[in-house]
Amino acid sequence: MANAVFIDNLQKSYGSITAVKNISFQVQPGEIFGLLGPNGAGKTTTIRCLTTLAKPDRGTVEVCGISAVKNPRAARRRLGYVAQEVALDKVLTGRELLHLQAALYHLPSEGAKERIERLLELLNLTTYADRQTGTYSGGLRKRLDLAAGLLHQPEVLVLDEPTVGLDIESRFIVWDFLRQLKAAGTTVLITSHYLEEIDALADRLAIIDSGVVIDSGSPSQLKERVGGDRVTLQIKEFTPEEEAQQAKAMLSSLPFVQSAIVNPARGNSLNLIVKGESNYLTNIEESLAAASFPIFSMTQSRPSLDDVYLAATGRTLMDAEMAAAGRRDLKAEKKEEMK
């Protein structure tokens, strides 16, 4: 069976900024696939190329075996798209908006009416259906947008950061709905910079950083691959680099420490990966005391997707986000969007 989504060697620039350098991944029919990465990593640009809103500079973009570049209309019919910023016509009621959407996808009016009522019911929107969408809360807007995206029973539903700005409850409603959708056989492609979102939902994921895929697989595969427990250690709140390096050298010589990284973005804290020693915290404490290093803080954790990200890039997702925020050329992107 063809891939639900096939993206190969995708490249896209906005002016002098290369938003996507080289992205390849495949989504199998019926799975939830996550694109994880900091803001500015190229997720949204990838999605814009997939949904035919932007034209790739190079590479292959296919939906159910259909090229989004050569046959954009056929690709659009197979895609449902829930954008990050929900663009609702504030004056229309929820029901009117869905009827408009149905006409834009050329659903026959009889079937459309029934389907709209069905989706309103499924997403608990019936009570609000005749209110103007300008009065909707963020969670309601997102649910209406989900209904709109699913109206034409697409093979693939694409969601760009679906829970940004939502309250916790709405977030769980969306998650739960996406799981139902998967159970019903719809393929879901979701981007997020929330690790726990991808961890909770995705069958497989690709981690994107600075316009390239740096790792991909199932969440458990990726976590297993980085292995071991994590220890984050601060000698002082802001440790001088030299002192951090000395501590690193000392700790690296311990037999159960697999790797040690100094993280300059976090006041030169030390990130250790430990394996094969159950009593490692006491052990580290004693070694540090023996070499008369103080301890400002020390935490331990199981490997998370953030550790996968850290192992692949040498920085945490949050650090990457801070750095990326300063790098974007928003004006050029906006201009390109409007083309």
């Binding site: 056929a74 019919r77 093979e155």
Partner: peptide
């Protein structure tokens, strides 16, 4: 629920 949320490729026509 399943039937409302399932994809329906027959709705989406061919390439042309």
């Amino acid at each position: 629920i399943q039937s409302s949320l399932s994809p329906d490729p027959s709705l989406h026509g061919g390439l042309e």
